Amino acid sequence: MKTVLVTGSNGLLGQKITEAIIAGKQFNLVATSKGGNRFKSTQGYEYAEMDILDPVSVSNVLKQYKPDAVIHTAALTNVDKCETEKELAYALNVEAVKTLITICEEYNIQLVHLSTDFIFDGANGPYKESDEPNPLSYYGQTKLEAEELIKNSGCKWAILRTIIVYGIISDESRSNIVLWAKGALEKGTPINVVNDQWRMPTLAEDLAAACLAVVEKDAQGVFNVSGKDMMSIAELVSRVADFWQLNKELITEISAGTLNQAAKRPVKTGFILDKTIKELGYAPHSFEQGLALLDQQLKDRTKEN
């Protein structure tokens, strides 16, 4: 049985990968994050504290567990923060990857890296894996630089690019656009939502399944992993409101240009998923199916409490 080490295991994707491995029992799991473990259960896997910014910490943990694969989910994904705190963004999104590459090369470990639609400028979406990147933001630049380092490395690698990941985790410590919109509308809070940017939101469970399929199949190369429904951000929020029967009059549609954000965003991204469906057996939920799964998880949690 292969051993999989996950970085950033306290994050949304990290926790969904942990859930999937515990449920499927197809891999041994080493979950790693900075600080203590925030996953609801401590059974069925090992947890190790690991600071991705400290090469000695990373090296020690990887040498101790000698995983067959590393799924690297840890990153600074706040696009505006990357723009204003470039040193931190570079350390987390590029330097950490350099550290992992060096160790993965040395021990012949498969490196599965998470990347983003923000490596594209949004002028010609949806994109296939081979399309030419042109990032508009520092976040996109750092993620593209990390991709290039991995592609030119000597390790076995796979890069999974994704778009707006949504879902829910046990301690509700991480929000995302779906939970934000649902929470605000339930409280009766008016919200402004951009209507001139288009994306294909991704259910965290689907992304986790794709990560594990890559390890299982020993797949190599770049893979697009997102939801299958293209929508504007305003439509996304409107569909959230419809699903939970919330008041859409609280939603005001605005243009992205009025927001004065630190980082530029691509207008229309989205992915062509044919390669991932064919090679990984990827089968994403529709957006409404994803919301239904989330709704069930929220109901289950209420019962548990």
Rank of each mutant, 00 (worst) to 15 (best):
I101W: 03
L62F: 10
G8K: 07
N60R: 05
K25A: 01
F39V: 04
T18F: 14
Q64I: 02
Q43M: 10
T42N: 13
N28W: 05
E85L: 14
L13D: 04
K40D: 08
Q43I: 06
A48P: 00
H72A: 13
V112A: 10
K34C: 07
Q15C: 00
L29G: 14
Y45A: 01
L62D: 11
K34W: 10
T42P: 02
V94H: 07
F27R: 07
V58G: 13
V97F: 05
P67S: 13
Q64W: 08
S41F: 08
I101P: 05
G11A: 05
T84N: 06
H113P: 01
E95H: 12
T77K: 03
I103N: 00
Y107V: 02
L111A: 07
Q15F: 04
K86I: 05
D68L: 14
I101F: 04
A31I: 00
L111H: 06
T73H: 03
I17R: 06
S57P: 02
Y107N: 03
S33G: 02
G14C: 09
I109T: 03
P55H: 04
E87A: 05
G44C: 11
Q15Y: 04
G36S: 08
L29T: 09
F39H: 15
L12E: 06
T84E: 07
D51L: 01
T32M: 13
G8R: 08
Y47R: 00
T84G: 05
V112N: 08
G14L: 06
L53R: 15
D80C: 04
D54A: 07
T99E: 05
L92S: 04
F27I: 06
Y107M: 03
D68S: 11
Q64R: 15
A91L: 13
L111G: 04
I101H: 00
E49V: 06
N10C: 01
T18E: 12
L100N: 09
I101V: 13
S33I: 01
E19A: 15
Q43T: 09
V61M: 13
G35N: 09
K66W: 04
N93T: 00
S9D: 07
K25V: 01
S115L: 01
E87V: 04
K25I: 02
K16P: 04
L29W: 14
S41N: 05
G14T: 09
G44K: 13
H113M: 02
V94Q: 04
G8S: 06
V70D: 15
G44Q: 12
K66G: 06
V97A: 05
L29A: 10
L88C: 11
